[in-house]
Amino acid sequence: MMKLNSTGQLVLILVAVAYLLGVYFISSPVWMGFTINALIVAVLALSWNVTGGFGGLSSFGHAVLYGTGAYTSAILQVTYGVNAWVALVAGIAMAAAVGGFIGALAFRYGVKGSYFALVTLAFAEVFRICAASFDFTGGGSGLQLKLAPGISNIQFADRTVLYTFLLAIVVLVMLLTAWIKYSRFGAYLVAVRENEDAARALGIDTYRIKVLAMAVSGAFGGLAGVLYLQLWLFIDSSIAYGSSVSIEALIGPIIGGAGTVWGPVLGTLGLHLIGEGAKTLLSNAPGLNFVLYAVVLICALRFMPNGLVGLAGRIGPFAKKESKDA
């Protein structure tokens, strides 16, 4: 699912896979719980990766997609008693629609770069305030799902089953990401990132491509939000739409390698390991993990602009494939 081009990348991915499988054997609830959280964030990171990584459309408000997925599902389940699976699909669809809408609005007026980041941030904040104010979103007290373990409710009593479920979803989203990367859509999205004028000249409807990217990103982000809801059975406005969600969405891909299939997952896992380590060492000073994230982010931007995957790509590169023509 990904062209490896160095020993470094191979090792990096093997370590990640070994870790993800190792969680089954360590049988430590702490590790399991921590990795489960990281996997949900990884889905969100893969969502950001579509727009921010492939398309170069750096959103600073991916919480708007995450929260919309979570709230849509929660409202449908709590207020209307809809089945969790149906609510999941609805949450994904709604988040995709919101993503497409924001994209359509922003790109119609040619918003790009840091202005696009600001627009998305503004949307996330508006949604957060609305969610805290209206009754149908539970206002300030949020929404609580009934505890009812069972596969039909997407609630898993057994952590191992839950973990397997989430792992399968991450793999699925990675497969979709790989498909995007190697499709016409992905090539066009990268072309838009690299040079929008040239892309337009080559017959690409750049507006359509960007809006589509936002919708796809919305679908992934909404999925992450729904997964969070199904795990914790509770959301409120700051959990769903808080800016910390937006930060988590972008920091993993940037550190892992934006615009790659493995980067967002590796970055998220690595960061959470660092964050968790810091929490343990520094006796649970809340919020300190974000300080550490910031330090890691600055170092990453300075020393490995292409993320972990890019850095690993420089270690022991495989021989270039032979040019077929003389």
Partner: peptide, 18 residues
């Protein structure tokens, strides 16, 4: 206006995708 981050082949392929 090349797509600087892509290879020559990928650059031309963006045109070919049309």
């Amino acid at each position: 206006q090349p797509f600087a981050g892509l290879t020559v082949e990928e650059n031309i392929a963006v045109g070919a995708y049309l």
